[in-house]
Design a protein around this nucleic acid. Structure first.
Length: 850
RNA sequence: GCGAGAGUGGCGGAAAGGCAGACGCGCUGGACUUAGAAUCCAGUGGGGAAACCCGUGAGGGUUCAAAUCCCUCCUCUCGCACCA
């Protein structure tokens, strides 16, 4: 055995052995329970970063642990391979997106193997391959058949920098999620997927996702944004038209003093004579700070009280929500209030607080519930009651109807880009929009294109692709040249992993065995985007009879970011840590400023390259550090000293086995049943101690993993174990047997976290087979319990003494011992004992008074 | 503004309502070294000579007992935000 911990050779050796012996390959086994462990697959950008490392290491620990626990574990990996960076690379470096992507995949796959991740690579999915995206097209056709994919012209979010359309979910604070450019509005013909048809179910099923973080569910619920209200028709005075509005506050309808239309409303042109003003308001749309309006000169009639109310056009009214028109109640809505103040429109109070009067004129809107006033026959009702009554009244009188609105919009999937799935649609002058027949799939993305990035799909200029025959009438026709949003690819990839490459994409029995994903792991940044789309697709696939379940991901773990301090030199901007020495810039010697802990990013140069870390310390060290430094959901602050600490721990583990390696191999541990008796010799007592220690360690490590994947504390337990046995010198055969038993189990416990060193030492102590195939050790409750406890004695809640007593004494005995303790007596003597509270196995609290 | 989450040593972080600070980093001292690195051992919340006292963002409450439960407030992070 090598005296030093030669992690480089150890890790390479076992990675090769694992692949050679196919230990990560897994097939269906109905006799065993299954566990599907999945990490969000990466975009093949070129290199993995620490965020990936953290994500995959967490998943790998879970997968290895579950396998040892006896589950048939599906743990696959793949590539979210379509997307813009490949095209940008093509424009910048003249390399074809396919070449660029496949080379990146090759490199990154190698990096993942170097991390010792337990993937079944036979199941690798690459979304840019025709055998994968064929099924994107197939699903699209099925959606089209069912009316769930449709084409319409609309204003869309347009990123001028990426030169493509963005879905609502991809616009963050008015900027592109990818490049952060300001998003513009542009009118385009687009393909949409009708996710709104599933809005109610997507919302309702949030309640069933008990294994998801509440935070993510809240974000999804808010995103879907259900609101219940009423649509009401207001006749327009002097015209044969009605103005339909949507409100969630029918209880305030008697307080309407004006109406507002979106400048995009179909009636806006007709009602508003001042066309210049209308244009101005139109330009001011989507400017949240500005509230402007123009009076049309027309009036509507409030159908409940026949009052005449002026109709305005206002920039803040959205055409795409509700009916694009609102009733305005300035007394009870702050935005309406401010608008009314600005344009000197009357304010009419119709709800007052339960126990006081509102002092008029109002200083702000009263938006809470209260008692209705000035509301005809409804006056005097509590407003929440009035809400229902007025809604019923409106329906009964045929003035409108109860309506549910969602904030969720249909998902625009057309992208004016090359590197994506072609949309399988043909446009024919005679037949119109014609879907490509299933038998003609896949529509292959042509290779020879001229990528310009100019906001137009380059496919338009590929005649072989663009010009085609109509599948219906056979005459000349053209193909759709937009490609699909890449989020389509990731909306069902987890289903594809269930079968191998050469098998059916939707293999019913295999899907039934493996799905749903038991544990999904990824970044919180996908809380609405990918996770909502994947839920939507799952429900669609269910309705197509492909999958027999409603939700794709049983449990979701959103891991925190990997963060680091950043350094900035007044002369040289951001610096890498290695460009800083003694708090000074190595180029100019100027003192640097230390930025707060932020997410690792290239631009701030506060990044750590996983390859460098693995080179320097080894994969096991990187794994242990990332798991130990913080619990999985929390942000992890990278610390080079922390990495040293993790490395030191593994060196200690290695040294511990090295110290005893000359005899460990020769000891057999067939009978480790050590009978516990009340009295024992010194030898027996040390044996018992080690035995108890390992059982305790098994118990606590298992508990920490099971309980919300607390890997940081699990590793702390392993460190404690090593610290405790580090100086132990087993001499007798009995001591050695127990010691080996303990080491053996310790290595199994260590193996999910640091699999390479565990595998190596497993063989060094004379064990056979792969440690991954070992069953997770069981612990004995009796042995795991410590034989003595430190009894804490409190007097009036303050700790006054600690007494070592044997385990398992009765409350009476414990109390007696506590009261006899000298230190305790000092605090109790001369006082009256009011109460004595014993807490089993822990403490005694003695309550006294003067 | 609305919603969610979080505030614990010098730092990362532990604590079934029951000893606050496990484990690690850092620091201090010692051993081994010509010396350093590495390693090993010991110590390490604050105050105090000690007995003890004080300590989990602030203030109140419940309880024999609160970092943990309840109320009020402060701060920070994240998400949503013209949604009628």
């Amino acid at each position: 055995m090598n005296q030093n911990y030669d992690f480089k050779n150890i890790e390479k050796k076992w990675q090769n052995e694992w692949l050679k012996n196919k230990v990560f390959e897994v097939d269906e086994d109905p006799s065993k329970p299954k566990f599907y462990c999945l990490e969000m697959f990466p975009y093949p950008s070129g290199k993995i970063h620490m965020g990936h490392v953290r994500n995959y290491v967490i998943g790998d620990v879970i997968a290895r642990y579950k396998k040892m626990k006896g589950f048939q574990v599906l743990h696959p990996m793949g590539w979210d391979a379509f997307g813009l960076p490949a095209e940008n690379a093509a424009i910048k470096h003249g390399v074809h997106p396919a070449k660029w992507t496949y080379e990146n995949i090759e490199h990154m796959k190698h990096q993942l193997i170097k991390l010792g991740l337990s993937y079944d690579w036979r199941r690798e999915v690459t979304t840019c391959s025709p055998e994968y995206y064929k099924w994107n097209q197939w699903i699209f056709l099925k959606l089209y058949e069912r009316g769930l994919a449709y084409r319409k012209s609309s204003f869309v979010n347009w990123c001028p920098s990426c030169a493509t359309v963005l879905a609502n979910e991809q616009v963050i604070d008015g900027a592109c999620w990818r490049c952060e450019s300001q998003v513009e509005q542009k009118e385009l013909e687009q393909w949409f997927l009708k996710i709104t048809a599933y809005a109610e179910e997507l919302l309702k099923d949030c309640d069933r996702l008990t294994g998801w973080p509440e935070k993510v569910l809240t974000m999804q619920r808010n995103w879907i944004g259900k609101s219940e209200g009423v649509e009401v028709d207001f006749p327009i005075e002097g015209m044969n038209e009605v103005l339909r509005i949507y409100t969630t506050r029918p209880d305030t309808i008697f307080g309407v003093t004006f109406m507002c239309l979106s400048p995009e409303h179909p009636l806006a042109e007709k009602l508003c004579d001042d066309k210049d003003a209308l244009k101005r308001i139109r330009r001011l749309q989507r400017e949240p700070e500005i509230k402007e309006g123009v009076f049309t000169g027309k009036y509507a009639i409030n159908p409940l009280n026949n009052e005449r109310v002026p109709i305005w056009i206002a920039n803040f009214v959205l055409m795409e929500y509700g009916t694009g028109a609102i009733m305005s109640v300035p007394a009870h809505d702050q935005r309406d209030f401010e608008f009314a103040m600005k344009y000197e429109i009357p304010i009419k109070v119709v709800i007052k607080p339960k126990d006081k009067e509102l002092s008029e004129p109002l200083k702000e809107a009263f938006e809470e519930e209260g008692i209705m006033i000035n509301s005809g026959e409804f006056s005097g009702l509590p407003s929440n009651e009035g809400k229902k009554r007025i809604a019923d009244y409106i329906e009964k009188k045929g003035l409108g109807k109860k309506t549910i609105n969602y904030r969720l919009r249909d998902w625009g999937i057309s992208r004016q880009r090359y590197w994506g799935t072609p949309i399988p649609i043909v446009y024919c002058d005679h037949c119109g929009i014609v879907p490509v027949p299933e038998k003609d799939l896949p529509i292959i993305l042509p290779e020879n294109v001229n990528i310009t990035g100019k906001g137009e799909s380059p496919l338009k200029y590929v005649d072989d692709f663009y010009k085609t025959k109509c599948p219906r009438c056979g005459f000349d026709a053209v193909r759709e040249t937009d490609t699909m949003d890449t989020f389509v690819d990731s909306s069902w990839y987890f289903v594809r992993y269930c079968s191998l490459h050469n098998e059916e994409a939707f293999h019913k029995e295999k899907i039934k065995y493996w799905m749903p994903v038991d544990q999904y792991i990824g970044g919180i940044e996908h809380a609405v985007l990918h996770l909502l789309y994947a839920r939507f697709f799952t429900k669609v696939l269910r309705d197509l009879g492909i999958v027999p379940f409603d939700e794709p991901f049983e449990r979701l773990l959103t891991q925190g970011m990997v963060c680091m301090e950043s350094y900035r030199c007044p002369e040289h901007e951001w610096l890498f840590p290695k460009e800083v020495k003694d708090g000074k810039c190595i180029y100019c010697g100027k003192a640097i400023t230390v930025g707060r802990v932020e997410k690792m990013s290239k631009s701030k140069k506060n990044i750590v390259d996983p390859d460098e870390m693995i080179e320097q310390y080894g994969t096991d060290t990187v794994r242990v550090f990332t798991l130990f430094a913080a619990p999985p959901e929390k942000d992890l602050e990278w610390s080079s000293q922390g990495v040293e600490g993790a490395h030191r721990f593994l060196k200690r583990v290695y040294a511990l086995i090295y110290k005893h390696h000359d005899w460990l191999k020769d000891v057999t541990i067939s009978d480790v049943s050590f009978s516990y008796s009340e009295t024992h010799t010194a030898e027996e007592s040390s044996v018992l101690q080690i035995l108890s220690l390992i059982h305790r360690t098994i118990k606590r490590v298992t508990f920490d993993i099971e309980k919300e994947y607390q890997f940081n504390t699990a590793i702390a337990r392993l460190m404690e174990f090593v610290n405790e046995v580090y100086g132990y010198e087993p001499k007798t055969i009995e001591e050695r047997k127990i010691f080996k038993f303990a080491i053996r189990n310790f290595l199994i416990l260590l193996s999910p976290f640091a699999p390479h060193i565990a595998e190596e030492l497993w063989r060094e102590i004379g064990e056979h087979g792969f440690i991954l195939n070992q069953p997770w050790p069981q612990y004995d409750e009796e042995l795991a319990r410590e034989k003595t406890i430190e009894l804490v004695v409190q007097v009036n809640g303050k700790v006054r003494s600690k007494i070592i007593i044997p385990q398992g004494m009765s409350d009476e005995e414990v109390v007696k011992i506590a009261l006899e303790d000298e230190k305790v007596k000092q605090w109790v003597n001369g006082k009256k004992i009011v109460k004595v509270i014993p807490v089993k196995g822990r403490l005694v609290n003695i309550v006294v008074t003067e």
